[in-house]
Amino acid sequence: MRIAVFQGPLEGGDVGRNLERLAAVADAAAGRGARLLVCPEMFLTGYNIGAEAVKRLAEPVDGPSAAAAAGIARKCGIALLYGYPEAGPDGRVYNAALLLGPDGARLANHRKTHLFGPDERDAFAPGEGPPTVAGLGGMRLGILICYDVEFPENVRLLALEGVELVAVPTALMEPYQFVARSMVPTRAYENQIFLAYANRCGREGGLVYHGLSCIVGPDGRDLARAPATGEALIVAELDRGLLQASRRLNPYLADRRPALYRALAAERPA
């Protein structure tokens, strides 16, 4: 399966403008043969916009923006994964990512489980479910958001669920370039999966995003990598032959000894 990752937008903006950007990028990605487009964290509204704006712009999972995005998916014939603030039926707001199929149907909605820093904790409630898994084009796909992928347990859980691709909308800022350059390839390698990492770029409310969006193979090598600055659309083919060959060479999942790791599930004091 061929997938695309969008790095951007360069500037924040209102929801309407970002939906227009989504339509243009989805059309470009479909034109390059991609069957899935992964966009960054909080793509629709901007990430560093403050708790009040997050609450004001939050929409339910089936809200008007989701309907507009579903129309884009149908028109372009491409699956979409993008970040947005979700207004939950429980009255809380979640940092979420919505996966739509190429027919516009909702396939999955992931709520970020690991919130980063006081600003996120002021704006969002944490998701409480396990990492999200969906099927797309015969491939098992897992969804995490930004900080979620920095916890190895999350990615390992997905790998044990038979996931072949983990897609990660993110808003990674300076000075955490190490995550994009080194940790993301390591997560792909140690779990023998493909990993798509879609970052923002430019400046927003005092944050500097450093780009470096990537699509990484199970051998830890970049299949495609965006630069540190500027908008970019990268595309790569996910070859199951590479996945199978890499898993034969590096049988981490088969060689696990779960009985030795039981302490990992225990609560530790702060």
Score class of each variant (00 low, 15 high):
215 I>V: 12
159 A>H: 02
148 D>P: 10
181 R>D: 08
129 G>A: 13
205 G>V: 11
186 T>W: 12
93 V>I: 15
227 P>H: 10
108 A>T: 10
116 F>Q: 05
99 L>K: 07
203 R>Q: 12
185 P>E: 03
192 Q>W: 02
163 V>S: 03
104 G>D: 12
113 T>S: 13
138 G>P: 14
154 N>P: 03
132 T>Y: 05
168 V>Y: 07
169 P>G: 06
185 P>W: 01
164 E>F: 04
207 L>W: 09
185 P>D: 07
222 D>F: 13
162 G>W: 13
221 R>I: 10
217 G>N: 05
168 V>T: 05
150 E>Y: 04
139 M>L: 12
209 Y>D: 01
201 C>W: 00
134 A>G: 12
176 Y>Q: 09
115 L>K: 01
107 L>W: 05
96 A>W: 06
201 C>T: 13
153 E>Y: 05
152 P>F: 15
153 E>Q: 12
111 R>C: 10
119 D>C: 11
201 C>E: 04
191 N>A: 11
100 L>W: 01
223 L>K: 02
205 G>I: 08
146 C>E: 09
146 C>M: 06
121 R>L: 15
158 L>D: 10
114 H>Y: 15
224 A>I: 01
187 R>F: 05
217 G>W: 04
151 F>V: 03
93 V>K: 00
97 A>P: 07
210 H>S: 01
191 N>P: 04
99 L>Q: 00
113 T>Y: 05
228 A>W: 03
225 R>K: 11
165 L>S: 03
209 Y>K: 06
194 F>Q: 01
144 L>M: 04
189 Y>W: 15
108 A>L: 10
126 P>A: 15
141 L>I: 15
137 G>M: 07
163 V>E: 10
137 G>K: 02
101 G>K: 02
214 C>E: 09
176 Y>R: 11
106 R>T: 13
105 A>R: 14
134 A>R: 05
188 A>E: 06
98 L>R: 08
211 G>E: 06
228 A>N: 02
222 D>N: 15
147 Y>S: 03
220 G>A: 15
159 A>M: 07
152 P>N: 04
129 G>K: 14
200 R>N: 08
211 G>W: 00
117 G>S: 08
138 G>W: 06
159 A>K: 02
129 G>C: 11
227 P>K: 09
220 G>S: 15
161 E>R: 15
93 V>H: 05
90 D>G: 11
185 P>M: 06
142 G>R: 02
166 V>P: 00
97 A>K: 06
113 T>Q: 09
164 E>I: 03
121 R>C: 13
204 E>S: 12
154 N>Q: 14
220 G>N: 09
225 R>L: 03
202 G>Q: 14
155 V>N: 07
94 Y>G: 02
96 A>E: 06
193 I>G: 00
116 F>S: 11
136 L>S: 00
150 E>A: 14
139 M>Q: 14
174 E>A: 15
185 P>I: 01
136 L>K: 09
136 L>W: 05
179 V>T: 07
93 V>T: 08
139 M>P: 02
123 A>R: 01
171 A>D: 03
152 P>K: 04
183 M>Y: 07
168 V>E: 04
